[in-house]
């Protein structure tokens, strides 16, 4: 792509990535969640890949596959964490442990360390969506040889 596109992408892609990370991280407090934040971050990856050409991204395919598997396995494992009660039981909520702070009732801005398994599941699904959609765009871009225009 042209130098204008590259410069704008270089400036704006870190901001999009940071916003995606924010949406994933605060998924249990503000609108959004793993899927939405992952989609936003994957769009930043697609912007970078399209504007800088796909040739230099060829090596990232294997880490993306690993991240996708890791996200899916972590999600299912977090679901199995509550198998003592039921599948997908939120055992960490309000337990005092990891992400287990009690929630103040009523409308309030919320605390980051609440939510039990929800933030962990948000991260798992977010990783999975980033890796999955990013590898789809990467595979489509690498298909049929490199023609960097």
């Amino acid at each position: 792509m042209t130098v204008v596109v590259r410069t704008v992408a270089r400036i704006i892609a870190p901001m999009i990535l940071a916003f995606g990370g924010y949406v994933i991280m605060h998924g249990h407090l503000t609108p959004g969640g793993g899927f939405q934040g992952g989609a936003v971050a994957a769009s930043a990856l697609a912007l970078l890949a399209i504007s800088f050409g796909f040739g230099r991204w060829k090596g990232i395919k294997a880490p993306l596959s690993f991240l996708e598997d890791l996200g899916a396995l972590a999600f299912v494992a977090l679901g199995f964490l509550g198998i003592g009660y039921t599948f997908f039981r939120n055992v960490l909520a309000a337990s005092g442990g990891l992400f287990g702070a009690p929630v103040p009732p009523g409308p309030n801005p919320g605390l980051l360390e609440t939510g039990g398994t929800l933030p962990l599941m948000n991260w798992a699904v977010g990783l999975k969506v980033i890796a999955g959609l990013g590898s789809v765009v990467l595979l489509l871009g690498l298909f049929g040889g490199e023609d960097d225009r």
Binding site: G27, H28, P31, G33, N90, A94, G100, G115, G116
Partner: peptide
């Protein structure tokens, strides 16, 4: 808010 421990009800429905 009490059961899932999250302020975002949509997320607690989706993930819990």
């Amino acid at each position: 808010q009490a059961e899932a421990g999250a302020n975002n009800v949509v997320t607690s429905v989706v993930f819990d």
